[in-house]
Nucleic acid binder design. Structure first.
Length: 794
RNA sequence: GCCGGAGUGGCGGAACUGGCAGACGCGCCGGACUCAAAAUCCGGUUCCCCUCGGGGAGUGUGGGUUCGAGUCCCACCUCCGGCACCA
């Protein structure tokens, strides 16, 4: 009777061993150390929301396998972990349950870390960080000031999206269908002076440098491309008839300029009031503007197009035609210049508007795509016309080529407590003054009430608020807004490299050694914002000379979600499966093994309890068979099982190392173990078991380590990865497949070195093949060496 | 509408450059062990026909290229994801 596999006992044992051996710590490089044998494996840092869930396990298993695999290939592996610990949920929990958001957060971090340790993840805990710690956000603030100094941050009075429920300003990115991404409340519009990052200045860099990201999923690149939304066209200047006022418009269709029949301003356009002042239209237009402002974003998009006339005219620079100027909210102030030339013949939206208000429609392009009724440009293909018209106008200062972007600047101010304070002081005399570097961090004050009431909760901390101006010494006030948490997570991967540095955010030499990240792993939900912001940060820091690279993540992998009972796991649906329950029952190794086995890791997958049991059965089998063969003598005899071992090594190594496919390696090892069970007396059985244990180590390291020890070996975590012997991959016989007209009719063993002519002869001798020739003549034979013979019969 | 991705057994899914479709796991069926059951282990399992041997069909649909197509090309259908009053 062999000893039973007891996961709980061996898991605790090996976790202790690894801990004492500091097995997964990655020392920083000596000066000048070659970075080619190092690798940085990074998973998106978790938000500490309480418990670890299956999605985390699936995510971190990917990094886990890569980290073990590369370490055993001789790489120095950096695999850190941290917590994205500022943010609304902790603050809301504190408001609901009382207590400080910090206490809620730190309790959650401790709980999650304990569960991660229970899973035995190969993480360098010496580098752990949490973004809410002053040791971290001190440098977030320092970076903010650096950005300010470089002109990447600015303040602006902006109409902001305001969530009446969360009492905070939302980034454009956080508004979905006119509703708050977080709570679903309908978003309102307000004017506030806000801090923004000038991300638009990097629009082209963010777009162009995507070309270097060959290892990113196509869909993520597409999403980023769509998000930046670059379109080429021209700025064309229209003059208000009878006034010295020029209004530029952005258009991607300068070829249709001759088809413009009216002109539209967004209701928010600064010239609207001036154009109608003192005219009979003043009241009607003011009315319309007021109503448009009150409309929700949803309403504005779904309703039928409407607008009002200003009674004014704009002069079309191409033909001096007088176009009536309208105000309509289908024109957005945020895109282009907030004004458009309307070409109802060639633009669907303009056409709808023209039909409703009976405005003229003038086609200027025929079915062949050639310009008509366009003065000297008539007869030109429209693409050529675009260029020609702009060039012609350019000479008369009426237009210039221009590029429009969908991307907006990143609004980073938040009127909330639980975030990184913005390190500036407002002085009546000096204006906005940065907090001097030696006074960082500006720590969060202790306050009683975190609930925002239309202004930041920090504004209630009277003593904290009042400071002397760092420049002139007069009484001044601190900035009371905090930063969007995306700021915290836009540079954490740099901090990991030099996590304990208390003199700088990071040392450039060390960061340049580890980065770019060799493999970044996370949810596709971060495909746009987080990844775009992190890329922006790195580019800006590179331009400031703080980094030697321009893209943070060389290779990206986005993993799918884990579903349960046909739906996304969520607390409200009550279909959450807690990893810890399964770890208690079946052990960490079974849970670790199951998540990557579930299906292709880039796709969503369904958790099934019986599936997990299959993993438990496999581990028991591996355990039993390995102990059975453990005290056998080794043998070099070449048997089918020995060949199978080498084939498995090749398959597993290729799948993990080159293709980054993590489920099929598990299947391959299972297949090998099944073979051991079927050939118990095979002289290669011990070698096969040893290899199976070694190959499964990245997935199930505890049981693998224990069995490795029982096999008389030590320290599997740093043992070299097995290598397939190429000679063993080529058998001296192979199974020849014989086809007739492409259909398999027979198969039999033949020597591997048989010449082609002989293969064909053998194929023709087969009785089963002859039965299918139907007396027909073999007109052609196709031979694929080592594989098949296909006889073509006419 | 535009862009990206995917359609394979009862289920999750394998099949890297065209070459034995269905690896591995789940489920189901049969067997061993057991007084019995559970657990465990072993075997079978694409569908249809067949007495054995075997035969036929088969990767969303319709065409095409090829000795040979899940894989390549064309058209279409369905599903998933992203973007969208973006001028």
């Amino acid at each position: 009777m062999t000893e039973r596999y007891d996961p709980q006992r061996i898991e605790a044992k090996w976790q202790r061993v690894w801990d004492e051996a500091r097995a997964f710590e990655a020392p920083n490089p000596e000066p000048g150390e070659d970075r080619s044998k190092s690798t940085y494996v990074l998973e998106m840092l978790p938000y500490p929301s309480g418990e670890l869930h299956m999605g985390h396990v699936r995510n971190y298993m990917l990094g886990e396998v890569v980290a073990h695999f590369r370490r055993r290939h001789g790489y120095k592996v950096l695999r850190p972990m941290g917590f994205d610990s500022f943010g609304l949920p902790a603050e809301n929990a504190a408001i609901d349950e009382g207590g400080h958001p910090r206490d809620v957060t730190e309790r959650n971090i401790a709980a999650i870390r304990a569960q991660m340790e229970r899973l035995g993840w190969a993480i360098d805990w010496e580098r752990v960080l949490a973004t809410h710690e002053p040791e971290y956000y001190r440098w977030t603030q320092w970076l903010f000031l650096k950005f300010l100094e470089q002109g990447h941050v600015y303040r602006k009075d902006v109409p902001v999206k305001w969530c009446p429920n969360d009492q905070t300003v939302l980034a454009n990115e956080q508004v979905v269908d006119g509703r708050c991404e977080r709570c679903g409340a309908e978003v309102e519009s307000r004017k506030l002076e806000q801090w923004l990052f000038r991300t638009t200045a990097y629009a082209d860099a963010l777009l162009d440098e995507m070309a270097t990201l060959e290892w990113w999923p196509e869909r993520v690149l597409t999403m980023q491309r769509n998000w930046i939304g670059r379109s080429e066209g021209a700025d064309v200047v229209f003059r208000v008839d009878g006034e010295e006022i020029d209004i530029p418009v952005f258009t991607t269709r300068p070829d249709t300029l001759f088809g413009a029949t009216f002109f539209v301003l967004a209701p928010e356009h600064p010239l609207v009031a001036r154009l109608v002042e003192g005219t009979p239209h003043e009241e009607e237009v003011a009315d319309y503007v007021r109503h448009a402002a009150a409309r929700s974003a949803v309403e504005r998009e779904t309703k039928e197009k409407d607008g009002v006339s200003t009674g004014r005219f704009a002069v079309n620079p191409v033909d001096d035609a007088r176009l009536p100027i309208w105000v309509a909210d289908y024109v957005l102030m945020e895109y282009g210049t907030g004004a458009i030339m309307a070409v109802p013949a060639h633009d669907e939206r303009d056409r709808q508007f023209a039909e409703r208000y009976d405005l003229p429609i003038r086609p200027v392009i025929d079915e062949e795509g050639v310009l008509v009724d366009s003065a000297q440009f008539s007869g030109m293909p429209s693409e050529e016309g675009k260029r020609a018209i702009v060039e012609w106008l350019e000479g008369r200062n009426g237009a210039r080529f221009a590029v429009g972007y969908r991307l907006r600047d990143w609004l980073l101010s938040r009127q909330r407590y639980w975030g990184c304070p913005i390190p500036v002081v407002h002085c009546g005399a000096c204006g906005v003054v940065p907090v001097p570097e030696q006074d960082l961090p500006v720590e969060l004050p202790e306050i009683d009430d975190y609930l925002p009431k239309g202004r930041s909760p920090l504004a209630t901390a009277e003593e904290w608020l009042r400071v002397p101006c760092p420049r002139c010494g007069a009484e001044a006030r601190r900035e009371t807004d905090t930063m969007d948490t995306f700021v915290d997570s836009s540079w954490y991967f740099l901090r990991y490299c030099d996590a304990r540095n208390d003199r700088a955010a990071f040392d450039r030499e060390i960061v340049d050694y580890w980065l770019p990240v060799n493999q970044y792993i996370g949810g596709v939900e971060h495909a746009i914002l987080h990844l775009l912001y992190a890329r922006f940060f790195v580019k800006a820091l590179n331009d400031a000379g703080l980094l030697g690279f321009r893209e943070p993540f060389a290779r990206l992998f986005t993993q799918g979600m884990v579903h349960y009972r046909g739906a996304k796991m969520s607390k409200s649906k009550g279909n959450v499966v807690e990893p810890i329950e399964y770890i208690d029952r079946y052990g960490a190794d079974a849970v670790r093994l199951y998540l990557p086995f579930l299906g292709p890791v880039d796709q969503d997958a369904e958790w099934q309890d019986t599936g997990l049991e299959g993993m438990v059965r496999f581990l028991h089998k591996l355990w039993r068979l390995t102990l059975e063969v453990a005290d056998r003598a080794g043998s070099d005899e070449v048997t089918p099982l020995r060949r199978k071992v080498h084939a498995t090594i090749a398959k597993v190594s290729d799948d993990i190392g080159r293709r980054f496919v993590l489920n099929t390696p598990i299947a391959a090892v299972m297949e090998l173990v099944n073979e051991i069970g079927r050939a118990p007396g095979d002289p290669a059985a011990r070698f096969a078991a040893e290899t199976a244990v070694s190959l499964i180590q990245p997935y199930a390291p505890h049981v693998a380590e224990e069995l490795w020890e029982r096999l008389g070996r030590e320290r599997l975590w740093e043992a070299p990865w097995p290598q397939a012997d190429p000679a063993m991959l080529e058998a001296d016989t192979f199974e020849l497949v014989v086809q007739v007209n492409g259909k398999v009719r027979d198969r039999f063993e033949v020597p591997a070195d048989l010449p082609e002519a002989e293969l064909v002869a053998r194929a023709k001798e087969s009785e089963r093949v002859r039965a299918h020739l139907d007396g027909g003549e073999v007109r052609q034979t196709i031979v694929v060496p080592g594989k098949l013979v296909n006889l073509v019969v006419g």
